[in-house]
């Protein structure tokens, strides 16, 4: 299944969840937030939210700024 994670095309197995997408980038779970197709998926729902073909996943964290 093709998904875009932080702008990069990636391949995840069928049935992969938001949690899998996050784990493909980092082991961190705190200080991180996820949006799928511009909708926030709260941390409690990562395991239960399945991804679909061509989903756009954004995984954000805080950086120096402002």
């Amino acid at each position: 299944m093709k998904v875009t994670i932080n702008g990069d095309a990636g391949e995840l197995p069928e049935g992969a969840t938001v949690a899998h997408a996050v784990q493909s980038l980092t082991a961190m779970t705190s200080g991180v937030a996820v949006a799928v197709n511009d909708v926030v998926v709260s941390r409690g729902a990562w395991e239960s939210t399945s991804l679909s073909e061509n989903d756009r996943v954004e995984v954000l964290t805080a950086v120096q700024g402002g």
Binding site: N6, G7, L25, T26, M28, G31, V32, A33, E58, V59, L60, T61, A62, V63, Q64, G65, G66
Partner: peptide, 13 residues
């Protein structure tokens, strides 16, 4: 702080 795409290469927060 600003919010940006997580970069796995960055150490320290």
């Amino acid at each position: 702080v600003a919010m940006r795409r997580l970069d796995p290469a960055v150490q320290g927060s």
